[in-house]
Design a protein around this nucleic acid. Structure first.
Lengths: 139, 139
DNA sequence: ATATTTGCAAACCGTTTGCAGCAAG
DNA sequence: CTTGCTGCAAACGGTTTGCAAATAT
């Protein structure tokens, strides 16, 4: 809920404003992966007094606080908008339907393990990764 | 070699110009993953008569012809430049050193297999994927 | 001869930022 | 009261594009 985010704001000494409360609510209610335009659209539906600059600032803030995750899925249209989702306890990756744009979340610990192994094989410690699968629905 | 690219140009009815020959040469000689600025820099060293607009048009052309692959690695600086490499017969993924920016190529057929399995589990056919590992060197 | 490609500069698009006013603490 | 936040509009950075001149075929 938004109280979760409010708590994090207080913790980090950030002020809780009407705009942040609304944007936080929109994000915690989303179960898709909206871009800034879409977050802006949904936020202004609740409170028309929100500018897109504030949405940009807020998602960046939340991302830096570890509240949000930013994605840059490849999409037919070639548009390059970042998309966001609440950071979850459980890490997951994404399967993107290239036709509809639908995004399916999944987790595979076998792959995660192999990723660690590969990284170590080359003398590295894995600090982050990005894995996106692009598929078409089988009829 | 550049004759490889020339052949593909002819095949697709594209004209072979001095600029394309130079850009093709730069790309086939690169064993890193240069961005457009860098391809431009290397190209103008060979022939100063090349504009960056032409480099942009040419890498796009080559990419659409399947000659090049485009990457958008996440990088500390936050800069968002696409980087390119010759498409190879053998598919591979990338391990990026987050400190130095160095890029290591690897292939793991076990992971590839698992990616197919996951995609099928959700009723999809895998048409593309992107996997990037970000690591720090172990001292 | 003609269709394609080029260089230039202007436009583009998503995102960031400087600033003056506003609101949270 | 002070500090941080907002809205606006202008700037940004990487990339694309319209156009007239140049070039490949």
């Amino acid at each position: 809920m938004s109280s979760e985010i409010e708590r994090m704001c207080i913790e980090r000494g950030m002020r809780i404003t009407d705009q942040r409360r609304v944007i936080a609510k929109v994000l915690s209610q989303a179960n898709d992966h909206p871009d800034v335009e879409e977050v802006y659209r949904r936020s202004t539906e609740i409170d028309s007094n929100i500018s897109i600059a504030t949405v940009y600032r807020t998602v960046r803030l939340f991302e830096e606080a570890g509240i949000l995750e930013r994605h840059e899925f490849r999409v037919e249209s070639g548009e390059n908008r970042a998309r966001f989702e609440l950071a979850t306890e459980m890490h997951h990756d994404h399967l993107i339907d290239v036709e509809s744009g639908e995004v399916i979340e999944f987790h595979d610990s076998e792959i995660e393990e192999l990723q660690h192994k590969i990284t170590e094989k080359y003398g590295y410690k894995l600090v982050d990764h990005r894995m996106e699968l692009y598929g078409v629905k089988i009829k």
